[in-house]
C-alpha cells in the first residue's frame, strides 16, 4: 500500500499497487509540472518506481496569486 499526502489540501489517500509516479500523477489528474512529488527529502520524476509502504507527499504548485 502507498500512502499519499496532498498539500495544500491536507488530504491523505491510500493506493494499492501503483507502479510509478506517472501512474500516481494520472490517478490524481496532475501533469508532470503541476505538483512536486516528494519521497523523504528527494523529488521524484514521473518514471520513478513506487514501492509498497512508500509515503509520498504531493505539493501542488499552482498559487492563486
Amino acid at each position: 500500500m502507498i500512502t499519499v499526502f496532498i498539500e495544500p489540501d491536507n488530504e491523505t489517500l491510500h493506493f494499492e499497487r501503483l507502479k510509478t509516479v506517472l501512474l500516481l500523477q494520472q490517478r490524481l489528474g496532475l501533469r508532470v509540472n503541476d505538483a512536486l512529488v516528494i519521497r523523504g527529502d528527494m523529488l521524484l520524476t514521473p518514471d520513478c518506481r513506487l514501492q509498497d509502504g512508500d509515503e509520498i507527499r504531493i505539493r501542488k504548485v499552482i498559487s492563486t496569486g
Binding site: P8, N33, D34, L36, I38, L43, R59, V61, S63
Partner: peptide, 19 residues
C-alpha cells in the same frame, strides 16, 4: 511556479501556504 517550488523545497525553505 514548478521551478520556484522545486528550488524552495531543495533549499529547505519553509513556506506559508495557508490561503
Amino acid at each position: 511556479e514548478f521551478e520556484t517550488a522545486c528550488y524552495a523545497f531543495l533549499n529547505g525553505i519553509e513556506i506559508h501556504t495557508a490561503p
